[in-house]
């Protein structure tokens, strides 16, 4: 069930362009699963008007956390909040990550803030491999928590951290048919992955967790549609946000 909960900010941490908020949200925490997201009202006024969607980054007892890349007005408004402040959170929304296929261990691929939903997911798996890419070192999310929960492989376009190149360059060492692949990142990364997957002899079992502009997050506005290859449209919020890679056109 979707719940609107007024949550207290227990901890607000800024590292570079990333904000992490830990929220006291007992009702949402009770049912939030990895891959789901929450829709946060960034202030009491009407500007920004809409809530902002963020994946559930972590969950522990009565608390959930979100990891936010500071991008525009809404995310900056969140960064100005302090511990002790209250924010309105709607969730859990969307569908959880499908479980890895038996015999096909998970392989996580993240671009920048796309890593956010994978921490909570990884905690329920046994130290999955995660390829994490960004343009440069400064755009990588805070790594500590990922290092304990995943086997991390880092790549940056400029080589300022990890191997030089994109996540695809790292992905090339893997036999895709042996894994259940989960990817989350910017549009360009999905496009490159789609191209790479299409060139494989056998279509890989791979999921894309998408970000779209959202009006509501719970199926009411029809604003978050994503084109499908059959000419139809899917709603990112209620059909997704995770889709089989071949189900959506990016």
């Amino acid at each position: 069930m979707i719940i609107k909960e007024y949550t207290e900010i227990l901890e607000s941490t800024i590292a570079g362009t990333y904000l992490t908020l830990r929220l006291n949200a007992p009702k949402i925490a009770a049912s939030a699963l990895p891959g789901q997201f929450v829709n946060i009202r960034t202030g009491d006024g009407f500007d920004p008007l809409l809530r902002r969607p963020f994946g559930v980054y972590d969950r522990s007892g009565d608390t959930i956390s979100v990891m936010v890349l500071l991008r525009g007005r809404g995310t900056r408004a969140l960064a100005e909040k302090n511990a002790g402040d209250t924010i309105s959170v709607l969730g859990p929304l969307g569908n959880p990550f499908p479980a890895p296929h038996p015999g096909k261990p998970p392989l996580l691929i993240a671009g920048g803030v796309g890593a956010a939903p994978f921490l909570y997911f990884a905690r329920g798996l046994s130290k999955p491999k995660m390829i994490l890419g960004a343009r440069d070192r400064l755009l990588l999310p805070p790594l500590e928590s990922f290092m304990s929960a995943c086997e991390l492989m880092i790549s940056t376009d400029d080589g300022s951290k990890g191997s030089r190149g994109t996540v695809i360059d790292v992905l090339k060492q893997f036999d895709l048919s042996a894994h259940t692949v989960y990817a989350c990142g910017p549009k360009g990364m999905f496009a490159a992955l789609s191209e790479y997957f299409s060139a494989q002899p056998v279509s890989p079992l791979a999921y894309f967790s998408l970000e779209t502009y959202m009006g509501c997050g719970f199926g009411a506005c029809k604003g978050c549609s994503v084109p499908a290859p059959d000419g139809g449209l899917k709603l990112c919020c209620t059909d997704g946000p995770t889709f089989l890679w071949s189900e959506v056109m990016l």
Binding site: D47, L49, G215, G223, C224, S225, L233
Partner: peptide
């Protein structure tokens, strides 16, 4: 009606533009 191709919504100061297309 399948409605319009995305993008379908855009927030503006205190307002919302929509082009859903009667899906």
């Amino acid at each position: 009606r399948s409605g319009n191709q995305p993008p379908r919504i855009l927030e503006t100061p205190c307002g919302l533009l929509n082009s859903i297309g009667l899906e």
